[in-house]
């Protein structure tokens, strides 16, 4: 049910981000969503890509500081209330969200969620019959 997000450590150096992006484009791996958490010292680039396994291996090979993180991808309607109701399901179960971001896909908003408790989060998704995006679906984009 979870998908693999690729996280990359970026020290604030020019050229580092473009190196990362060109590794992906050279391998014809598509970026579905990207977000940067930035501080004055360094940034963490989080990526949802079409082929996370291959991307991860390529980054390792190219000596990029990288990790894989399992995140949930929940499909919601574009109305404001649907975000709130999805988040509500998790908070109600006592799960805290470490970070989230979203992107559009096929007329839907996809919410990427990293929680502190993946096992419980799985139960929440089942209980509320939330629509989630699987790795297979992602690979077929």
């Amino acid at each position: 049910m979870t998908i693999n997000q690729i996280s990359i450590f970026l020290e604030n150096k020019c050229g580092k981000l473009s190196k990362v992006l060109s590794i992906l484009s050279d391998a014809h791996i598509g970026i579905i969503a990207a977000t940067v958490a930035d501080t004055s010292e360094y940034g963490i680039l989080r990526l949802i890509v079409t082929n996370p396994e291959k991307a991860y291996a390529l980054f390792k090979e190219n000596n990029v500081t990288v990790s894989k993180t399992e995140v949930l991808a929940i499909a919601t309607d574009r109305c404001a209330g649907s975000f709130a109701s999805v988040l509500g399901c998790f908070t109600e179960a006592g799960i805290s969200v470490e970070y989230m971001y979203c992107f559009s896909l096929d007329g839907k908003s996809i919410l990427i969620l990293r929680t502190n408790d993946p096992v419980q989060a799985y139960e929440v998704v089942k209980k509320h019959k939330l629509e989630y995006i699987s790795t297979d679906k992602l690979n077929n984009i």
Binding site: F9, L10, E11, K13, K16, E41, Y42, N63, V64, T65
Partner: peptide, 8 residues
């Protein structure tokens, strides 16, 4: 202290 990426 500054953390940097591998190969930096």
């Amino acid at each position: 202290l500054k953390l940097v990426g591998r190969g930096s």
